[in-house]
Amino acid sequence: MNVNMKKTIEVEFKEGTLIARLEGELDLRVADLLRKELEKAIGRYPLRHLVLNLGRVTYMDSSCLGVILGRYKRLAQQGIGISLVGLQPQVRKVCELSGLLRIMAEYGSEEEAVAKAG
């Protein structure tokens, strides 16, 4: 656990799809930072779709689920969808319980998510 973590995401823009790779333990402590970083990345690219790669997320609870759901609601108004990749068991469980998996597609790899985007 890195207490001084300054960064929660890394992004790549490919064929109209923004890939955001999240990492670490996503709880209350990083929720504001995650929101700011996602907003900054979303504002920087002319995206048509957002892929969240959670492969390096080792823990997540409602504080950061709320951040993701908030981005979903905002982007949906512009017709931009979000899909998910790399859910570890704990992360999948809270995504399922929160209903996130009912509104976002889940794929086995980034490549697949990019190919199916739009």
């Binding site: 409602s62 504080s63 689920l65 709320g66 759901l69 908030g70 809270v94 319980l97 929160s98």
Partner: peptide, 13 residues
């Protein structure tokens, strides 16, 4: 309004 109201849902589940 910024939160999801899922904390108690998770605790219960």
């Amino acid at each position: 309004p910024e939160r999801m109201g899922l904390g108690f849902v998770f605790m219960q589940a």
